[in-house]
Design a protein around this nucleic acid. Structure first.
Lengths: 134, 134
DNA sequence: TGCCTTACGCACCTTTTAGTGCCTATGGAG
DNA sequence: CTCCATAGGCACTAAAAGGTGCGTAAGGCA
């Protein structure tokens, strides 16, 4: 018998850890191959990527599709259940972006490579200019 | 120079880990004392609670107010920046609740003590073509 | 005096998570 | 033949996260 005190515990079991939320954020927009994910997340090791993908697959969040080719071709994509996380993942990205903005505005040396969307952070920062993606 | 590839990395640095999101979820509704949080999160140890609260305070997410009394009285509350997480925290709770519901519906022995809100998860879904390598 | 309360520091130990290096398989290019 | 690319298994090690136990402070109370 598994007992949770509050729903967030179950959510964090699935998207917690250093890599899972990052992987899922990349998979929001399109299915990706192992190598594409590795390039999108340069710091991750092959071992960790495989391990995290296996766990997400086991939890029913992503699907793994093997194209029987040489060299191997495997694609990972969000399942319906994974897709139900996309609003949450968007918010995780946007909140982080706003945090980075406000820290940079406060003089910290911070950069962000891939921006998703815009500001939703509090007072410390007057709201900034909006940024359109192409 | 700190560099992030995607916003979610910054967010997870702050609410990641086993306890932080849980603590923040409890603080969404009211300020709480050390002992209240400990009772609300029975599995956490005093050391971990203190440590996580310190980190959240350092990150500007919660405030720590000391009432100069004997015995000591200290209250923790979300700051404006912490409060900007509340929508996100609500979603983390609700998604987890929906996941627990669907697992219980699938026959798993799962319970949830404190419920926040309702369903936003999809039905158990068959995922796409999944080939197995042999 | 000795024990209650609350909050929390610190040293030490265990468990979990993450990283490194080496190995397989296959067909084509050189 | 050897090397390339792709995906990833497996053994071992390093680092981070988490847990245990003990000590402090200061006033109230039996």
């Amino acid at each position: 018998m598994t007992t949770y005190n509050i729903g967030v515990e179950a959510t964090m079991e699935i998207i917690g850890g250093k890599w899972k939320a990052i992987i899922l954020c990349h998979l929001r927009h399109q299915a990706m191959r192992n190598g594409e994910l590795r390039r999108a997340i340069p710091q991750i090791t092959q071992k960790m990527l495989t391990q995290q993908l296996r766990e997400l697959e086991h939890d029913g969040i992503i699907s793994r599709t093997v194209f029987d080719q040489i060299p191997p071709h495997v694609e990972y994509a969000l399942t319906a259940r994974g897709d139900s996380l996309s609003g949450l993942l968007n918010q995780l990205c946007r909140w982080g972006e706003a945090l980075i903005d406000s820290r940079r505005a406060a003089g910290e040396q911070i950069t962000l490579r891939h921006r998703d969307d815009v500001n939703l952070l509090p007072p410390e920062d007057a709201h900034g200019a909006e940024n359109q993606k192409g």
